[in-house]
Amino acid sequence: MSDDSAAGAEADLPEGVERRTFGGRERLSTRGAQVYGEPVDAEGWRAWDAGRSKLGAMLELGMDTGLVGDESVLYLGAASGTTVSHVADFAGPTYAVEFAPRPVRDLVGVAEDRTNLFPLLKDARDPESYAHVVESGIDCLVMDVATRGQATVAVRNRQFLADDGRLLMAVKARSEDVTAEPDDVFDDVVAELESAYEILDTARLDRFHADHLGIVARPK
């Protein structure tokens, strides 16, 4: 378990995620096979670059994700596996959905180095196309699809989540509407999410990702 006093006001990191020193700087890290040229220390911990990962940024900013380690995860918008590789390092069964073929080719390579990562070339807007593979009662639904209708996708995929599960979502304002003010976009997304989820926490990820909002929610 993490050391409460050291963590201070910040939420505990999940088991399997540690702050370690790389090149003189404290960074998040997980232990597993290297994926994108990230620094790896002598004990096999690899730095988790919050600038390349919205979930990494949410943890780095101290959001209470509810992650403890070893949970089952459904990850939507896995791309070539940068973030989901870290997730699979500390989580249990990890289902990674991505609909673009090119990144999935790389994602398969990432999954080949791990025993608990299951790549799925599927469209997150059509959950029935993977409901025969992904188990029910998922502990954590991570979403980073950066596409129009992000809230709708979250609502449609709620059926996979356990009642006490968590939705961890990164919303990209520009994906919804390039002309609107990010705050207005975020308000709309949150309003739509509230039809199916109770919002526990939101935070701007701007320090790492411009015009992105991080959301932690649980099913209603």
């Binding site: 073929p101 999935v104 994602l107 608990n116 790549p119």
Partner: peptide
Amino acid sequence: LRSATLAAASEAVAERE
């Protein structure tokens, strides 16, 4: 499940590309 999803994803990628 791992063997099946790895094979399925590789085949699907090859076919789509």
